[in-house]
Amino acid sequence: MNAVRWLFALLVLIGLSAAANAADVPIPPSPTHWATDATGFLAPQTVVALDARLRAYESSSGHQVLVYVAPTTGATPTEDWTVRAFARWKVGRKGLDDGLVLFVFPKDRKLRIEVGYGLEQTIPDATAARIIRDITPELKAGKPDAAVTSGIDEILAVLAGEPRPARDSAAAGKNLDGPRASSVPNPVPVYPDTGSSRFGEFFGEAIGILIGLLVVAGIIALIMKLPDPPKGAYISSRGSGFGFFDALNLIGGIASIAGSFSGGGGFSGGGGSSGGGGASGSW
């Protein structure tokens, strides 16, 4: 009886994880650099320069600002994809969520600035939209390096509290930026060397799966030995001391431990909360 139930639960679990894997354009794992371009959209030296600059910026200010160029978001709307990526990568510091990512999708001809909760006061939507508007002409003109570099120039300038460099005549509009977010003098998190993160992830996952299998096998053995739950205790099969829900909880716990293990060693700052702030554009 119990064994059959267990087999069923296992099948459901396997089915669920398969469904999760079948998403159309999956969110990639956390980037390992501040500037990432796997598409060749930007010149390699631009990526290197941006990376060094944003790395230095993070160690001086604490804010994690990333550039990420991916070919496309597929059938997923840009905004939907970027907010998920932001959450998955945990951009920004934990509790502060002071991260920002400039996304560029050359195949979709779309770009987006995704702003974490902690920077929404400093870069409200209107400001993000102005920056997007400022750099789209250069993208249209086929000068992606200049566009992305000046985009980052503007973002860092706004973050530094400077008035936005006036590139268009109308820039003297009213100030919608609001008060600057309080910059808490937190110690700058030190990221481990990220060179081996791919391996670390794989290793973590393998260990997670192994532990999971062992635990499942153990639980099955345990349950097969236990008598059926007493009649009347229909409310929950907890009646047998260590029942269905406890087992599920345990598996869930192990899976999350394994998950955090495999997710670690990367680049994530621990933040990642964003409510969809920022702005999008296309060219």
Binding site: E79, V83, D125, A126, G276, G278, S280
Partner: peptide
């Protein structure tokens, strides 16, 4: 400028609503 800022805020808010 006023309208385009409003429009950006409106779009951002619609996106937040979707999220």
């Amino acid at each position: 400028q006023n309208f385009s800022d409003l429009q950006a805020q409106l779009e951002g808010t619609e996106n937040r609503i979707a999220v």
